[in-house]
């Protein structure tokens, strides 16, 4: 299957990664080669095989509902590119949630 530059551009937008036209032109054929190589997983993935999302079959790992100390507001904001009034400041948002 051939992955077009348009398709790669759509994926990049979905992944919020700005790509230059040169990057797009380079990435598309590379991804195509990789996808071609990995597609062979379907050769042996029969309907009767259970998929594994984890290495081991462990279940029910829970934490007791007990309060632990939070970090300070200062620590929370310590890495913020921009802050205001104890909050993280971000540019205007276009899309609604």
């Amino acid at each position: 299957m051939a992955l077009s530059t348009d398709e790669v551009a759509r994926l990049a937008a979905l992944a919020r990664v700005d790509l230059s036209p040169e990057e797009l032109a380079k990435l598309a054929p590379q991804l195509d080669v990789i996808l071609d190589a990995v597609a062979r997983v379907s050769e042996i993935a029969g309907d009767d095989i259970k998929p594994s999302s984890h290495a081991f079959e462990i279940t029910n790992v829970f934490r007791p509902d007990e309060v632990r100390p939070s970090i300070s507001q200062e620590a929370a904001l310590s890495g913020a590119p921009a802050e205001e009034d104890g909050k993280f400041r971000v540019p205007r948002i276009l899309e609604e949630d």
């Binding site: 909050k87 993280f88 400041r89």
Partner: peptide, 9 residues
């Protein structure tokens, strides 16, 4: 129309 936004987690 907002100029910017603030986030409280």
């Amino acid at each position: 129309g907002a100029d910017y936004s603030l986030v409280d987690y």
